[in-house]
Design a binder for these strands. Structure first.
Lengths: 215, 215
DNA sequence: CGCAGTTTGTCAACGGTGTTGACATCACGA
DNA sequence: TCGTGATGTCAACACCGTTGACAAACTGCG
């Protein structure tokens, strides 16, 4: 009953995704969304309580890319590593939107599914409740935090990104060796290779550490 | 020459620090700062080009708090842990800046000092050049990334923050146990305690993992 | 001394934001 | 057929950062 809905949460969310991808996250305002949808801006408030709720929904939207289905032949460690990698890739794929899952868990469908999958695998790996919670916090903070940092560069063309890394390396290499001996000794290895590779390395180390304090 | 200055960058920055501590970062507006300083809000624009520059200045103000001096009696592990903790705290005190991902080619002096200190301690801990670089990347990505995530909440008043954590926990606890068994088993431990504590736990795990792959 | 120049603070105003409450419109169930 | 409730529109509010014109207060110079 009631007036037939021209809008819906889904239509609004996809319009928000399009708009943010085209004009940037800063332009994701209630008025710009109204323009994009061809309706009055305040109509959105019939579908979302406020802007923050919409932001959470948009953030959750692109978490749908993470495949959370259990894979019987997969070890818990491989599964956790894969889940974190896919979560990272989902965030890097939409760098301008990654900002919305940054500061708070959305506690929406897809985010909950990822949480369940991670905790499921940790339980399979023998983590008791408190240790599982600690490991979950560590993995999520690291994965999402690192993605937040890398997103800005990941959205650049490869050439630009490589140039940036080269600049960083040479900046460190240019520092006076007598004043910064430790940097001088390592400079050529800093920001070498891809950010994904560095993420994998760090994730492996973190997993090893978590595994050693499983209980 | 000119009218005698009642304001100064320093006065404004410390007023901003007080205001943000009392009312939260969201209340760090040009008008609220004017009230705090007892002057017209737009007077601030005589000392800062815009609000972002003020935020950066507030950030730099706190970044100086990280003590990078070597402490002879301190083990490399303790030192690394302390450096990361202090870096985190400095970032949490500058939430607006922590959220703002800078890939500026000109590294700040304090940033370089922190890098040198971390690499110095890692070298002391027996990390060869490539492993030291990997460990540094992991520690920085985790520390800064995690701080970026936590900054928004850390800047809120304690009561607000606790209420938020309670909401998160109860949201997870309210999920149907048959559909999300792994969450149900762990829900009461999720987002328990302080974010600082969770950071410490994760940092310890990461350090343990890094130590085990020191070469 | 008086005038010019410079710095600094004040004021009004602009365009932007999220949000609210009153109103109009339309479809469905009683 | 007639409400009733859902939906969209509209005007308005309070807030935000920022700007340009103006006033005040000091220094340096003639």
């Amino acid at each position: 009953m009631g007036r037939p809905a021209a809008l819906s949460r889904e239509r609004i969310i996809s319009a928000a995704v399009v708009l943010a991808a085209r004009a940037g996250v800063d332009q994701l305002t209630v008025r710009a969304l109204g323009d994009e949808l061809g309706c009055d801006p305040t109509a959105l408030y019939r579908h979302f309580r406020n802007m923050e709720e919409l932001h959470r929904a948009v953030g959750d939207h692109f978490l749908a890319d993470v495949d959370v289905a259990p894979r019987p032949r997969e070890s818990w460690r491989t599964a956790v590593r894969r889940l974190c990698r896919e979560l990272r890739q989902a965030q890097l794929r939409q760098p301008r939107l990654a900002v919305f899952v940054r500061s708070a868990p959305t506690r929406l469908q897809n985010e909950v599914a990822i949480t369940e999958a991670l905790l499921r695998e940790l339980a399979k790996g023998g983590f008791r409740a408190p240790a599982a919670a600690r490991a979950y916090h560590a993995l999520i903070e690291f994965t999402v935090g690192s993605a937040t940092i890398d997103a800005a560069l990941a959205s650049q063309p490869v050439a630009t990104r490589e140039a940036t890394y080269r600049t960083w390396r040479s900046d460190y290499a240019a520092l006076p060796a007598d004043e910064f001996p430790a940097i001088a000794a390592v400079a050529s290895h800093l920001y070498q290779g891809s950010a994904d590779r560095r993420f994998d390395d760090a994730l492996d180390a973190l997993l090893a550490g978590l595994e050693s304090r499983r209980r």
